[in-house]
């Protein structure tokens, strides 16, 4: 695939019409709402959006209101990739029969981590295996926030949620986060990227690349949630940036399966001393508060160990090694 030469300026983006408009009912400091707004700023023409059940569906379409200036459909929780399959198939067939007014219509599917890591993974795997031409955007806030902060396959090790509560004996979620973007790379699809709302330009360029990709493209966006992660609503972008700076959520992309570290993360490969410790990131979020009790302190070391292990594995995939 070819990569876009598009480099949006702040002015250009501010002036571009909002397709996901204000007035929706997301919480103050909502990371996913920022992600949706950014992705919609990267559209290149006529676009149809489909949304899985979840926070973003609920806050943006309370009948009779809608925050969407594009055609938009929600059907259920586990099937957003199947929605995209059907929309894309319909566009193809209608175009073949001369019943489509547009030369090209892009299709974007939005889903949270529950709708992607867990209940939606079958439909996602099937849709990309079939090679439908669409961009799948995962906004990852690391738990079922819409239903009240239950753990998902994305919730990180040690996080306290309402179904993995930190108790006297158990220090929050025992399992580790599923490496979903790598799982998508393993499907051998043409484009996979991770992005953070703290780096809007990188995110927009990646979204545009995903839209320009012929065939399935997958984006994993790191979107902190003040309600679920338990931090002040003003800290969303700071935490999103810290995720990258600690390398717990590195930014990279694969084009036709080739891993490339994005500049925002590459700096920590070149200058490992600038990579921040995970404890500072954990400290900012009260979902990890219990880990700072003497009894559970070892969990912080476990998390740091796993972050380093995954980071080093990623560097190998990107043909880089950490020089420490």
């Amino acid at each position: 695939m070819t990569t876009t030469s598009w480099k949006p300026t702040a002015k250009e983006i501010v002036e571009k019409a909002e397709l996901f408009t204000s007035g929706h009912r997301a919480c103050a400091g909502c990371g996913p709402a920022i992600a949706l707004r950014q992705v919609m700023k990267a559209t290149r023409g006529p676009t149809i959006v489909t949304n899985a059940t979840g926070c973003m569906e609920v806050v943006s379409t309370i009948y009779p209101y809608t925050a969407w200036k594009v055609p938009w459909i929600h059907t259920a929780f586990e099937n957003v990739a199947a929605n995209a399959s059907g929309i894309e198939a319909a566009l193809k067939a209608m175009k073949r029969k001369g019943r489509l007014a547009h030369e090209n219509i892009d299709v974007i599917a939005f889903a949270g981590d529950g709708g992607t890591f867990d209940i939606g993974i079958q439909a996602l795997s099937g849709a990309v295996e079939r090679g439908h031409d669409f961009l799948y955007v995962l906004y990852d806030n690391e738990a079922y926030m819409n239903t009240g902060i239950q753990r998902s396959g994305s919730t990180p090790h040690g996080a306290s949620t309402t179904t993995s509560p930190a108790g006297r004996v158990i220090p929050g979620k025992l399992q580790y986060k599923k490496p979903i973007a790598d799982i998508m790379v393993a499907h051998e699809i043409p484009y996979v990227a991770t992005a953070s709302i703290a780096y809007w330009q990188d995110l927009l360029v990646k979204a545009r690349r995903g839209l320009e990709t012929e065939g399935p493209a997958f984006m994993h966006i790191f979107t902190p949630c003040p309600r679920g992660w338990r931090y002040d609503t003003s800290k969303t972008i700071e935490i999103a940036r810290l995720g990258v700076e600690t390398c717990i959520f590195p930014l990279w992309e694969t084009i036709d399966g080739e891993y490339n570290l994005s500049p925002q993360s590459k700096i920590f490969a070149l200058k490992p001393e600038r990579k921040k410790k995970i404890s500072g990131y954990l400290k900012m979020q009260r979902r990890f508060k219990h880990l700072f009790r003497p009894k559970f302190k070892h969990v912080i070391d476990e998390i740091q160990h796993r972050v380093d292990e995954r980071w080093n594995r990623l560097l190998k995939r990107c043909n880089m090694t950490q020089s420490d």
């Binding site: 059907t75 198939a89 067939a93 019943r99 079958q122 439909a123 295996e129």
Partner: peptide, 25 residues
């Protein structure tokens, strides 16, 4: 001239039909 989508489950089969139908097919 039909577009045939061989889905990975019946749940997705009907979903794809529903979404295609909503698109105008």
């Amino acid at each position: 001239e039909t577009e045939f989508v061989c889905t990975e489950s019946e749940h997705s089969a009907l979903t794809a039909c529903l979404a295609a139908s909503a698109t105008g097919a």
